[in-house]
């Protein structure tokens, strides 16, 4: 079943003092099925972050539409957008974005509190997720008391707690050491295996090699697409690096 459809999205930024226009995305179209695990790769300035912001409803495209469950999120009125984001999307950020004022448990509860859920329900939801991510023992700690890997797992728990349709991850391994990265990617695999749709923006070939599908963006366009199929992570890794080499060389390649 198609969960997300991105159709002819274009985004043009106008610099503050008028005049110059920068085209961040020119014409991007792709679709995501339910249960998919997609990585979007590209160099800095290729438009990755712009795309992610549009998918997260933090930014509006200049043209085109984004359908989540056949609902065009571009047209959701400002008033409802936050609630929409809370209920349908989960976010994992590069720098975790946990709040120092809350304990880990309360950080994970934030989306539920904002949705006005009962405390009992929150506890019930937290238990299996915390177990799955191996963070039960740090729930009462504060973000400044735990390691980066633990923080990111807590952030993943926060992203999952409201049962979102789609988890958006922005460079989730960007601030982690390699061991924590592997660990986190492992958790992403499990989560995806349970049916959670994940869309991840990343620089890391290793991270991307865990995905079922990799989209390459260059100069605001989808440049290439790779399917993992039955390949192992190592084979996928090799393929992605080849593609990136071609991408960097500026040639049109067919893998």
């Amino acid at each position: 079943m198609t969960l997300l459809q991105v159709q002819h999205v274009m985004k043009v930024y106008t610099t503050r003092f008028g005049g110059n226009q920068v085209e961040a995305l020119s014409d991007v179209s792709f679709s995501v099925d339910s249960g998919d695990y997609i990585a979007i790769m590209g160099e800095s300035g290729s438009g990755k972050t712009t795309l992610l912001n549009i998918l997260a409803a933090l930014d509006k495209p200049t043209r085109g539409s984004v359908l989540l469950n056949r609902k065009n999120i571009v047209q959701i009125p400002e008033k409802e957008i936050s609630a929409f984001r809370r209920n349908n999307l989960g976010f994992v950020f590069q720098d975790f974005n946990l709040l120092d004022t809350f304990s880990i448990q309360d950080n994970i509860f934030v989306p539920l509190v904002l949705s006005g859920k009962k405390h009992k329900e929150m506890e019930q939801k937290l238990k299996p997720i915390a177990e799955k991510l191996g963070i039960e023992h740090i729930l009462t700690k504060f973000p400044y008391e735990i390691s980066g890997g633990q923080k990111q797992r807590a952030a993943v728990a926060r992203a999952l707690i409201a049962d979102p349709e789609l988890v958006l991850a922005d460079e989730p391994t960007g601030a982690l050491d390699s061991k924590s990265s592997d660990d986190l990617l492992q958790h992403f695999d499990y989560i995806n295996a349970e049916g959670q749709t994940i869309l991840m923006v990343t620089h890391s070939i290793k991270a991307a090699s865990h995905a079922k599908r990799v989209l390459f963006i260059k100069d605001g366009n989808i440049f290439h697409e790779l399917y993992k199929g039955e390949m192992s992570n190592e084979e996928m890794f090799q393929k992605i690096s080849n593609t990136l080499a071609i991408l960097a060389a500026g040639e049109d390649g067919n893998a």
Partner: peptide, 13 residues
């Protein structure tokens, strides 16, 4: 703090 909250889904009002 508030910019994070906004990203997670807290609206202006």
């Amino acid at each position: 703090r508030f910019s994070i909250l906004q990203k997670i889904g807290l609206n202006q009002s």
